[in-house]
Amino acid sequence: MPHTAPGRTLRIATWNINSVRLRRPLLSELVAALDPDVLCLQETKCPDEFFPLEEIRSQGFPHIAHRGMKGYNGVAVLSRIPFEIRHDDPDWCSKGDCRHLGVALDVPGGPIELHDFYVPAGGDTPDRAVNPKFAHKLDFVAEATAWTRARGAARRSVLVGDLNIAPLEHDVWSHKQMLGVVSHTPVEVEALTAWQAAGEWHDALRHFVPPEQKLYTWWSYRAKDWEASDRGRRLDHVWVSGDLAGALTRHAILKPARGWPQASDHVPVMIELAL
Rank of each mutant, 00 (worst) to 15 (best):
F61N: 10
R234K: 11
N18C: 06
G96A: 02
T4H: 04
R156N: 15
D139M: 07
T44V: 12
D91K: 02
R80G: 15
L215W: 05
P6V: 07
D124R: 10
N131A: 01
G74F: 00
T148A: 13
R206T: 12
L179Y: 09
S264F: 02
L235R: 01
A263P: 08
G74M: 05
L138N: 04
L244P: 04
S264E: 06
E272Q: 12
V75H: 00
D265V: 12
V181N: 10
D236R: 12
V240Q: 07
N131V: 00
V269A: 12
A129S: 04
H237F: 13
D225E: 13
E272K: 07
S229E: 11
W219I: 09
P82W: 11
P47V: 05
I56W: 03
R80I: 08
P111N: 15
A32I: 00
S264K: 09
T125K: 05
R233M: 14
W218P: 02
R80P: 12
A153L: 10
A257N: 01
V182C: 11
A144H: 00
G109E: 04
G242C: 07
P2K: 03
G74S: 04
A153W: 08
G109S: 05
T44Y: 00
E272V: 12
G180R: 15
T193F: 03
W195R: 02
S28I: 02
D127K: 09
I253Q: 14
S183C: 15
Y221K: 03
T185P: 03
L215H: 06
D106M: 13
K255G: 11
A33C: 10
A245Y: 02
D48I: 01
I17R: 12
G110R: 00
C40H: 07
P120A: 02
E169K: 12
V181E: 06
R222Q: 11
